[in-house]
Nucleic acid binder design. Structure first.
Lengths: 174, 174
DNA sequence: CCCGAATAGTTGCAATGTCAACAAAAATCC
DNA sequence: GGATTTTTGTTGACATTGCAACTATTCGGG
């Protein structure tokens, strides 16, 4: 029971009332509350554990994983930012810190002097491989293992539907 | 396809291999990837819209809503922090900004001079009531309306299971 | 070619968040 | 009943973020 000012519902939760805004029904509120609570709790917990055990932010991890999945362990900064859901500026800052730690480096592209490749160093790959098992364990313990296989499918399905709603905006035509 | 270094799986995804850490199966990866993507996208989008339209952070909104739901529109700072999933320190700072805007105020408790009540002002309640319809619309458009009623139930159910895993830690005994 | 528009990425700075230290009051315990 | 510990909440220093301005390079006509 939250998310709405509780007092003075503009229109009592009548499914036909569509004047201003259909207020959330109790069931919908539960979905929303669960969503916000679940998201924050899990993300914070995973981040905390990853940071405590390996000094890596979930974002750092994301950067490293993304690079590790590419051929040559490299990506253009822009693509990396998009893929890791960060602004370019944010990526620049965060990437700087990883550079200082020797986990990644920048390599200028010769074809197009505007672009910079983000490259994973051997040291960075090692850090990732060391952190990965613990991280996977965290993901299991706080998310995966709390769900039955069926719930998992349903969650994945629901998330897919939600994520879809964001695909067009990012870039109207690839 | 992400979240794991892709290269050199410690043990190929064999369900019986439990030596170091059971790697995530493709289905599990999909769940996890969907979770992280969906969470971040939705939360960021809602926050952005709320901020653009009403100059309120999702956290600000959370604070105001929590207060509006209490009798007398007041709560102890600590309880508010717990309820809104913030650290006490974080709440103090964020609350300060809301005080400056006149949306909330602090009232010392006379019984126990340590505690401070966070109180919603009429102005704050009004701000909340103005923002709520737009916010609900956002929640609908990015989350609720993208799901069938059945998916909604499933999501709520899954989240409940996930959130449960965190109930003990926060406060062993109320 | 050359000029204006678009793209890639960085930088500076103000706003924000975090963490540990702190102060004040209450509860606990000899 | 006075020292000790807990609980509340704030502070202040320091790191991180986000936004807008900026540099550099390429692209696109005409």
């Amino acid at each position: 029971m939250e998310r709405q000012p509780s007092e003075t519902p503009p229109e009592t939760p009548a499914p036909d009332a569509q004047g201003p805004v259909p207020w959330l029904t109790p069931a919908e509120q539960e979905t929303w509350l669960g969503f916000i609570r679940g998201s924050l709790l899990v993300l914070e917990q995973l981040d905390a554990e990853l940071q405590a055990a390996h000094g890596l932010t979930l974002e750092d991890y994301e950067i490293l994983v993304n690079l590790s999945e590419q051929d040559e362990e490299r990506m253009r900064m822009s693509d990396l930012a998009r893929s890791a859901l960060m602004s370019k500026s944010h990526l620049t800052h965060r990437f700087d810190r990883l550079v200082q730690r020797g986990f990644v480096e920048r390599v200028k592209c010769e074809r197009d002097l505007r672009v910079t490749y983000a490259v994973l160093t051997p040291s960075g790959l090692e850090a990732l491989e060391v952190a990965a098992p613990d991280h996977v364990r965290s993901v299991r313990s706080h998310l995966i293992d709390r769900l039955t296989p069926e719930q998992q499918r349903h969650l994945a399905c629901g998330f897919a539907a939600v994520v879809e709603g964001f695909d067009p905006p990012p870039c109207p035509e690839s």
